[in-house]
Design a protein around this nucleic acid. Structure first.
Length: 517
RNA sequence: GGCGGCGUAGCUCAGUUGGUUAGAGCGAGGGUCUCAUAAUCCCUAGGUCACUGGUUCGACUCCAGUCGCCGCCA
């Protein structure tokens, strides 16, 4: 059986879920639903990253111990994703004993293989970044990201002999051109590897400075550095379901993430896997940032859009549609209310929503909701069917290539065609003459088929809407993504469809803006 | 500083291996129908394709340089 394993990063619990997290989730969810529709067995892992200096500091600032803070924050993510309806097979918390045990087991294994050594290190440490900075990285003596001076620290630590594995990592990426997508990021990784500037990785923190982390099994005076801990969640998430699950899914691993954490995933992680004698992941899928004005959408800079607020105000599918339609996967995109409302109104309310509404309304008005036989097709009928046949081919193709915006664009070309078909064939005019009713019935039957195919192709993009349309049509969704339209086979003659509902209310920003008090 | 990318209509972008009047969507303006969520559908945008040189019969599309923006690395 074919399988597909997709992960998101485990999210750092220093802030609430924001738009960037939500986009990553939407992508992972869309991919999982797509492969599922194709009959592929899927597994999704996400979670929360709960260790590290920063968490300890935030918890202390709240007067809490870190574990309690984590126990309070982690569910915010879990619940948000659940309310958004994202498929999640395993939610990993790095404070879960099963995860901690695996991290220790892996550390021990790497240590036993001689890939971990002890050494003194002096440097400038930024608690915001949770890493040492070089002098050259500083801007005016400050960390460029956190705008404050790092602390000079000298200490003894454990190091992972990453340099030993870098040549093999490089070979792997050269031999597997699609392992990092988009290609732009693959080139960056290859450049990084070729530069020779990558050293071994410090994987410990002395407890004297920080004790909120997983203890090193071979030296209890130290805890594990966050990346070594966090990356292993991709394995522990599967192992929590048993070794069979791990063996079945691991070779198909697709890691979705934003571009800021490319390096740990493309350099540290494959090195760790090689040191652990585990197969490498299948692909890294790198997306860009949602920018709003000048500042990037980041947890430390505020500027947050809360997913649950968006869902409550506009519905999860409207948010999904905007995110998937507006961002070319891999590139940055901008988020603002005007673009959001424009997109939603033009494509969802006026396009898809109105089409469903007018078709179901006519079916109700002229035939009491009962589906009529197809009549012999005209040229216009053939064109319409051709448009949807093309969508049936293009939408899955673009999805497979992660070009979600193109996939949706392709589907909307067909929908636009359907709206035009209504005007061209004018069933509402024909219906005035009794002898034309068979033709009206044939036209409406075809339009119902348009909605059927649309719902089929929306299953992984807008699952809620897809279900709503099938339910309005009074039929069940196909079990498997069909390879041909099958028009004429979905509605028995006399089958009754439902009267229209408003799938997507038009968004009026001025109205939305007022009741803020 | 090194490597790489980008700069096309008000906005977001397409523009394949160089070739007749440079395209789409949205927004805006005008019109139409009336089944529909005042939605649909039709018409309308005259933009030095950043700038300057070069190659060519001919370049938005190739080359060099300039300016501006950005990414990665140092």
């Amino acid at each position: 059986m074919e399988r597909f394993y997709v992960t998101t990063p485990i999210y750092y619990i220093n802030a609430e879920p924001h738009l960037g997290h939500t986009y990553t989730m939407v992508v992972a969810d869309t991919l999982a639903r797509f492969y599922r529709a194709k009959g592929v067995e899927t597994f999704v892992v996400t979670g929360t990253d709960e260790h590290g200096d920063k968490i300890a500091a935030i918890a202390a600032a709240h007067g809490e111990n870190p574990k309690l803070y984590a126990d309070r924050m982690s569910p915010l993510f879990q619940q948000a994703w659940q309310e958004c309806g994202f498929l999640v097979d395993q939610f990993v918390r790095t404070t879960d004993p099963r995860h901690e045990q695996l991290v220790q087991e892996f550390l021990q294994r790497v240590y036993d293989n001689g890939d971990i050594y002890f050494s003194r290190y002096a440097g400038l440490y930024c608690t915001g970044c949770e890493r040492f900075l070089t002098e050259k990285e500083l801007v005016g003596g400050n960390c460029p990201d956190h705008k404050r001076p790092p602390e000079p620290i000298e200490e003894e630590n454990y190091f992972f002999r990453m340099t030993r594995y870098l040549p093999a990592v490089q070979q792997y990426f050269e031999a597997h051109p699609d392992a990092i997508y988009p290609e732009h990021y693959r080139n960056e990784v290859l450049a990084m590897l070729a530069s020779g500037g990558i050293g071994d990785l410090c994987i410990s923190r002395p407890k004297t400075r920080l004790d909120w982390g997983i203890e090193l099994p071979f030296d209890r005076r130290y805890v594990c550095y966050v990346w070594f801990d966090a990356l292993i969640s991709y394995v522990s998430g599967l192992k929590m379901r048993g070794d069979d699950t791990f063996h079945a899914f691991w070779p198909t691993a697709h890691h979705v993430m934003a571009k800021d954490i490319l390096k740990p995933h493309a350099i540290f992680w494959p090195s760790m896997l090689l040191a652990l004698r585990l197969p490498l992941f299948r692909r890294l899928l790198i997306h860009g940032y949602w920018v709003r004005g000048e500042a990037k959408m980041s947890k430390s800079l505020g500027n947050v859009i809360r997913p649950l607020d968006m869902k409550q105000q506009f519905g999860i599918d409207t948010l999904r549609y905007f995110l998937l339609r507006e961002m070319a996967f891999g590139q940055d995109a901008s988020f603002n209310e005007d673009a959001f409302a424009a997109r939603a109104n033009a494509d969802l309310a006026n396009g898809l929503g109105n089409l469903a509404s007018r078709v179901l309304s006519m079916q109700q008005r002229y035939f009491d909701g009962q589906v009529q036989p197809l009549d012999p097709p005209t040229a216009a009928d053939d064109d319409l069917q051709g448009a949807f046949a093309q969508a049936l081919v293009e939408v899955p193709e673009w999805t497979e290539q992660l070009a979600f915006h193109r996939a949706l664009e392709a589907l909307w070309r067909a929908l636009d065609h359907a709206n035009k078909y209504v005007v061209d064939t004018a069933p509402f005019t024909l219906a005035r003459e009794r002898q034309q009713l068979p033709r009206v019935g044939g036209i409406l039957h075809r339009l119902l088929e348009c909605l059927y195919t649309t719902a089929t192709l929306l299953a992984w993009f807008l699952p809620e809407t897809s279900q709503k349309i099938f339910s309005l049509l009074g039929v069940t969704a196909p079990v498997r993504l069909p390879t041909s339209l099958g028009w004429g086979e979905h509605f028995p003659i006399g089958h009754r469809v439902q009267p229209p509902i408003t799938l997507f209310p038009r968004i009026d920003l001025q109205k939305e803006a007022t009741p803020r008090a």
